[in-house]
Design a binder for these strands. Sequence first.
DNA 1: TTGTACGCGTTATCAT
DNA 2: ATGATAACGCGTACAA
Lengths: 350, 350
Amino acid sequence: MTVTIKDIARKVGVSPSTVSRALNGNTRISDTTTRKIQEAMEELDYHPNSLARNFANGLTYCIGLIIDARDENTFANAFFNRSVFAIEKVIQEYGYSLMITNDRKKEGKSTVENLMLEKKVDGLIMPSSIVRPELIMELNQAGFPFIVMGEPKKYKTDATWIDVDNELGSHMAVEHLIQSGYSKIALVTEKANTVFTQKRLAGYLACLKKHNIQINQDLILQYGQDITADNKRIEELMSGNSHPDAFLCGNNIIAFNVLKTLKNINYRIPDDIGIVTFDNYPVAEYTDPPLTAVDVDTYGMGIQVAKQLLRKIQDNSKDTNHMYIPTNIIVRESSMKGDRKNNDKNGGAS
Amino acid sequence: MTVTIKDIARKVGVSPSTVSRALNGNTRISDTTTRKIQEAMEELDYHPNSLARNFANGLTYCIGLIIDARDENTFANAFFNRSVFAIEKVIQEYGYSLMITNDRKKEGKSTVENLMLEKKVDGLIMPSSIVRPELIMELNQAGFPFIVMGEPKKYKTDATWIDVDNELGSHMAVEHLIQSGYSKIALVTEKANTVFTQKRLAGYLACLKKHNIQINQDLILQYGQDITADNKRIEELMSGNSHPDAFLCGNNIIAFNVLKTLKNINYRIPDDIGIVTFDNYPVAEYTDPPLTAVDVDTYGMGIQVAKQLLRKIQDNSKDTNHMYIPTNIIVRESSMKGDRKNNDKNGGAS
DNA sequence: TTGTACGCGTTATCAT
DNA sequence: ATGATAACGCGTACAA
């Protein structure tokens, strides 16, 4: 049989409510009975039944983390994962558990809606990619706490969101390239219609303008589905008159392909052409030469997300706000024009 | 106010138990009342309260997935993540949610123990790295369902576990290298005291023996903490008389370092030396040349893990068994001795 | 400080 | 096929 507070109460000779109070510590209980109760719990190996506790409280002590089913790579994305790690750590400290769910549709209602409606979680964290207007409205109307990871395209003021400061990151990268002696800088983005691409473009343009460098639309490219064709376009670009002397790439895979293409047509990196990539994963460190990367403290981002959500839950606050996580730049060989390379020694990173 | 089955019952003019039955569909309910109940639920926007339902059933409909806090890379490990993705998908189909927890100690009891004792999950999935005898005993004694991911070092018969077939993978890799014309094959492992390293060694030895190739202990190496020193050892090994003509590496990072070192001392890959690595992540595909890899269907592994656990839960079966997930080999340039290389075309993978 | 009584929403048992 | 009733374990007004 499972041991309940009644068993403890009977053994100690008090009422169940006293045991309950001793457990939660809200009310004052005499030291002696408290001690007796604790001893009895030890002896009978009592463990609170969270099923009953949650039911009585109407709380789940669970946070739902939604992942985007459409993005096969979400789970393989180290960026995302470090955040998850941080989120779990924080909420666990506050007595919450982390529930991870894919956003699937199920008989009309989506998984996310059911998480709220069926009281399976007390709060939600979700990627901006799944944010739909109806969902936001529904959550807000119910006063249900949630945080969006990534700046949403619309409804920016109807949700609290946290995102990487992509504009800053892009600005830093361009600044670094200019300081390193490059001037004709190309920007190679992923899909153009995302918020983060737009922000990166903005940072790129702003930094060029700051340095009075003329914008050349031919240097603003996009990598799409057909990698081979995209690489071909880089080749063609390089054969033109005003070809770039540096590339800022939207992610590691783009950067790797640009690097490979340039090497194939006998450009030397970084002496002829500089390369900087967004994100430090998965290959930035392992290409030849290693890639300078715009990095983000994704762990810190997770911490922020979790804390914001817990605050919302505990304060029952309905305000919305947003926050940008600053970027930093990890300088590696791919952008060190003219620097002496250390090919044989690469230890000693602090 | 929240809508309950009582509200539905009142509206339809039946008893709450009838509504409950209509919800769960165990018992026969007349078609007319069933329809009326469904209509009422639509109209009042009723949603079952899982808190109450779980309490009444004494079930959480949650599966706990434990991750190893000591391994900083667990969450960044694409291998692991693909499994998680699969697990979530399967259990979700069966009405379960996935709870992810780090294995921390908390006031004597570990997180894992509390998950069971406080009835927060109905079953557990955990990595072999956290398996301790006391834990296994405790779970078994309580008749609590759990699956271990990875072959445990001890207590193999006290738990149901699923692991990659590392011995097969190693055997396949060596076979492939031999078929490709290499004969002096080195094995570079990670930590030696793990089960998977031992299995890989066994597969390596068996395949050499099968081909009547003499074992050379000097060709069985280990990469540890000091990468620079390890690389140096490779250099020294290559300067010896009976140096290897191929390397089977325990993971991508080791393989990358071996590759880099060999290139530094002017060996050509794959013409002079062949390289095969375990795992296809994170960089196998992106090195120069791309690395042949021993790969595993981690997604399929997750499916198996989830199904096994659900079976245990539903059948309340206390039997233990184990299963090896077969490996396959992805052949890339790093082991294609003498083959014509396709440097400029790399599309067309089906 | 402690006890009594009740409620949380659902399911299961036992009737009818 | 359906209704009445109890029970799940805990928290909390209210009373003492």
